[in-house]
Nucleic acid binder design. Structure first.
Lengths: 219, 219
DNA sequence: AATTTCAGTGCACGTATGTACACTGAAATT
DNA sequence: AATTTCAGTGTACATACGTGCACTGAAATT
């Protein structure tokens, strides 16, 4: 949002440290506040006043940024989804050692964006509102993208799309289980961490082993 | 107030159509009320007053049955877990056509005890309190039991326990994904229903196919 | 028949909530 | 320099919440 060219004054071009930028900063503070409070509670149990206080503003000022907590939730979902998409982009750039590097990428991103992933998982499975539905759709899209990627792999090239989607869904389910495992442990528990990564790799290996013997077409 | 179990009279044993039974009935009403309210919301957003009203009693009478909403939640978890265990027992009594009948059993029970399964899934993934932890433990136990069962199957008899647990976790993850799918659709949508069952069977088939080629290595 | 027990009632309280309203003061525009 | 804009403040109110306390009345015990 660095479009300063449209501002009419010359002064604004040099150093616009203010107003719009300040508003964005407060907005971010609200999102961060919510994300921090969500550490050990569900989104539904979050109050507008709490979030406002955590962000350092008075309750009524909340409305300068969001019309309701629900709207804040949707914004938070979008922000979190950006994390997910970013991860997917990283994972896609792999040529060899597919399983190791995929799990590694997942592990890295969950570590770095723990709060975002926690929010996604919690709202997808525990939530009920518009937020949960938005996330569900996004995850379905993710699985579809994965199916397309899978179609490029050796041995899967002539699979029917139905089977590819089934495989993609299964992989996503396995990955989600891994995310859940990672979120369950303390972030600094290196031992448990390594164990989960190991199991995640084995899970994927077993799945691909099954895929290599899969007889596509009508069974 | 404390020792309730020591009923000294014989009369209480024979046929007490009242008092204790009446209390149990109200207790059940509270559990049912909560379960009904949980249809489209999370447990955390449930208030004591709401549940009491739905059950047809005054708020303060709630305490005659549970010390807190949290305690009610744990009781609800236990009740729901009984549904799960019942399902597992049914599934275990299968000799042939393992995959078909397992998926069939799962499908049946989710249909019949939709509210219970919804509660389990939501609280496991969306919750945070003592309830969520209790469910997590129970699901781990379930996976361990499954690992023991798997050890009796042809081709898996000499697998190391680590690999068996990995396989069991993967199966549970696949099953949970299926439960989520079933909970997402309308209960009377027969077409979507059948599609989910079909995909669930394929998922399991692929997993067992992978297992049949798995080389249980000692790491 | 007299007494005790206790599930359920009714009231009262302090606290937290969402949000309406009038405001302030500095940045932005004129 | 005068004016407008608007993110953030402060007060206020109706509502919902958890829960303490004194109670009622029928079942259970004596």
């Amino acid at each position: 949002m660095g479009d300063r060219a449209s501002s009419l004054t010359l002064a604004a071009v040099t150093e616009s440290i203010t107003r719009q930028e300040r508003k964005q900063r407060t907005r971010k503070a609200l999102l961060d506040a919510a994300l921090e409070l969500l550490d050990d509670r569900g989104f539904a149990s979050l109050s507008l006043r709490e979030v406002a206080k955590q962000a350092g503003i008075v309750p009524t000022a909340f409305y300068r940024h969001f019309a309701s907590m629900d709207e804040l939730g949707v914004a938070l979902a979008e922000e979190s989804m950006r994390s997910l998409r970013h991860m997917i982009r990283s994972a896609r750039q792999t040529s060899s050692k597919l399983i190791e590097s995929s799990v590694h990428t997942l592990h890295e991103h969950v570590r770095a964006q723990r709060a975002h992933f926690r929010f996604i998982v919690r709202e997808r499975y525990g939530g009920t509102g518009a937020v949960a539905r938005a996330i569900a759709v996004e995850l379905k899209l993710f699985a579809s993208d994965l199916a397309v990627d899978l179609a490029r792999l050796d041995g899967l090239r002539e699979w029917p799309t139905d089977d590819l989607h089934m495989l993609a869904d299964l992989i996503v389910a396995a990955m989600l289980a891994t995310v859940l495992d990672l979120l369950d442990i303390r972030p600094d528990d290196a031992e448990a961490d390594a164990a989960i990564v190991h199991i995640a790799q084995q899970r994927l290996r077993l799945i691909f082993l099954g895929a290599s013997r899969w007889r596509p077409s009508v069974s």
